[in-house]
C-alpha cells in the first residue's frame, strides 16, 4: 500500500515532518518513549538532550534507518517513513561518526557517496565542485581523509550528505569533538543552507550554546520529550527569575554561601558567574540574598538554564508519577 493513500489528513503547509508517537524498545529498555513533534519547513530544528537520552535513536527512526517499535513519521509532502526507499532518497544524513573512508581521498569519498545516491558523470563533477567551494575544502580534494582535522572531516561528511540535494538534512551530533572555531563555522553553513536553499534541517546536539541558533527546539530526556517550542518561548518559564552575579574569584565559596537558601530554586556557577533561580514571587528576597556577593543583575536565560529547569521539573513529576510531557506553545 502506498503511503500517500493514507486516510489521515495531510500535514499543515508549514510542517515538513511530523513524528507521531515514536517508540523504540531494545528488549526491556525503552530508548524512546512515544515522542510526537513537528519539524517546520525550511527551518533549523534542534533536538537536544544529554548522551543516552534517546536523541540518536529518534533521529535514526526519522531518517528511516531504524524501524520504530510503534508510532510513525510523515513528511516530504505526502510520504510515510514506511515507504523507506523513497523517504531515504530525499534526505541527507550525517552522523557523529562521520563514516568517511579514511584510506580514500576527499574526492574519492565524495565520488563513492555520489554513486550510492545515484549521481554520475558531469552532474556529480559539478556537485563536488560546488560543495567543495561552499564548504571550503577545495584545496584538500586530493588529500587522504585520514590526515584531515576533525573539523575538516566533518565538512567533507556534510558535503557527502548534500550531494543529492536533499530536501531534509539530518545532522546527528555533527560537531562532536570539533573545537569552538570549527563549530561556529559549521553552524554558519547550516544556517545558510536553511536560509538560502530553503532546506529543512534537524540537528541533535548536547551543546546548549549551539541550540540557541535553532529556530525551534525539542528537549528529550530518558526517552521522553520534555519540552518543545521556540527558544524565546522556552525561556519564558524562567525569565525574570534568573539572577546573575559576576564574581572576581572564589566561585565555589560564593556558591556554597547561597546554596539551599529558601528563596532560591537553584544556584549554580557558569564560570566566574553565579546564577540563581528565584522561586516564584521571591525575586526580591533572592536579590537581597545574592547582593552580599556582588552586584546582581537579572540575567537572560540560556538554553542550558532552561534545560536544567525542565529536567528538574521532569524529575519531580516522575517522582510524583505524573505524565512526563509539558508542551510549550508559542
Amino acid at each position: 500500500m502506498r503511503a500517500e493513500t493514507s486516510s489521515r489528513a495531510p500535514l499543515p503547509p508549514g510542517v515538513f515532518l511530523r513524528a507521531e508517537g515514536l517508540v523504540k524498545k531494545f528488549g526491556d529498555f525503552v530508548a524512546v518513549n512515544g515522542v510526537t513533534f513537528d519539524v517546520p519547513r525550511g527551518k533549523v530544528f534542534g533536538f537536544l538532550g544529554p548522551n543516552g537520552s534517546g536523541k540518536s535513536t529518534t533521529i535514526r527512526m526519522l531518517a528511516g534507518l531504524l524501524n520504530p517499535t510503534s508510532g510513525t513519521a510523515r513528511g516530504f509532502d505526502g510520504l510515510d517513513v514506511t515507504d523507506t526507499e523513497r523517504w531515504k532518497s530525499r534526505l541527507g544524513y550525517m552522523s557523529q561518526k562521520f563514516s568517511l573512508y579514511l584510506d580514500l581521498t576527499v574526492e574519492e569519498n565524495l565520488r563513492f557517496f555520489g554513486r550510492v545516491y545515484g549521481l554520475a558523470g558531469p552532474r556529480l563533477d559539478e556537485r563536488i565542485r560546488e560543495l567543495s567551494g561552499t564548504l571550503r575544502f577545495e584545496r584538500l580534494k586530493d588529500t587522504l581523509t585520514e590526515s584531515l582535522s576533525t573539523g575538516m572531516r566533518q565538512r567533507v561528511a556534510l558535503a557527502a550528505a548534500l550531494l543529492h540535494e536533499p530536501l531534509l538534512l539530518f545532522l546527528d551530533e555533527p560537531t562532536g569533538g570539533v573545537d569552538p572555531k570549527g563549530r561556529r563555522l559549521f553552524w554558519e553553513l547550516i544556517y545558510d543552507l536553511a536560509a538560502e536553499k530553503g532546506m529543512t534541517v534537524l540537528v541533535t546536539t548536547h551543546y546548549m550554546d549551539e541550540a540557541e541558533q535553532c529556530d525551534e527546539l525539542a528537549f528529550i530526556l530518558n526517552g521522553d520529550l520534555i519540552a518543545h517550542g521556540e527558544p524565546h518561548a522556552l525561556k519564558r518559564g524562567i525569565s525574570g527569575r534568573l539572577l546573575e552575579v559576576d564574581l572576581e574569584s572564589a566561585p565555589f565559596e560564593a556558591l556554597a554561601a547561597v546554596r539551599g537558601a529558601a528563596p532560591l530554586e537553584d544556584a549554580y556557577l557558569f564560570g566566574l558567574r553565579l546564577r540563581v533561580l528565584a522561586r516564584e514571587g521571591r525575586v526580591d528576597d533572592a536579590l537581597s540574598l545574592v547582593s552580599r556577593l556582588g552586584t546582581p543583575a537579572v540575567a537572560e536565560p540560556s538554553l542550558e538554564d532552561v534545560f536544567v529547569d525542565l529536567a528538574r521539573g521532569y524529575a519531580e513529576r516522575k517522582a510524583a508519577a505524573q505524565p512526563p510531557t509539558r508542551m510549550v506553545t508559542t
Binding site: 544529554p50 562532536g176 565555589f252 534545560f307 536544567v308 529536567a311
Partner: peptide, 16 residues
C-alpha cells in the same frame, strides 16, 4: 564532554 549540564556541575563541585 557530552555529559548533561547538571552532572557537569556536580562533577566540578567534586573536583573543586
Amino acid at each position: 564532554t557530552g555529559v548533561d549540564p547538571v552532572s557537569r556541575r556536580e562533577f566540578w563541585l567534586v573536583l573543586n
